[in-house]
């Protein structure tokens, strides 16, 4: 089962990369863009057909390694 872990900096944490992309988009003429946050997506292939088990495992992986809870939030998305 393929699972995606989407990781973003928490709301209060300044995202310098997002800010740089926002400035670039604005300077390209996309004036309607008001905010950009850059995160990362980690795709994991877990050897199970049980959706709940896959989510549970992915959550454990995110807590222990993939995300840093001091600065980051994550969401888990089942791909297939």
């Amino acid at each position: 089962m393929k699972v995606a872990v989407n990781i973003h900096l928490k709301k209060g944490v300044l995202d310098p990369q997002g800010k740089a992309v926002l400035n670039a988009l604005n300077s390209l003429g996309f004036d309607e863009v008001k905010d950009v946050r850059v995160g990362k997506q980690i795709l994991i292939d877990i050897d199970t057909n049980n959706k709940e088990e896959a989510i549970k495992k992915a959550k454990k992986m995110a807590d222990e390694l993939l995300a840093n809870p001091v600065i980051e939030n994550y969401e888990i998305e089942v791909k297939e």
């Binding site: 310098p16 740089a20 840093n68 600065i71």
Partner: peptide
């Protein structure tokens, strides 16, 4: 920091 031997975390420099 990542090992939790010290509190907090590092992020990218503000100016990139």
């Amino acid at each position: 920091l990542e090992s939790h031997l010290l509190p907090g975390a590092m992020t990218r420099n503000e100016g990139l």
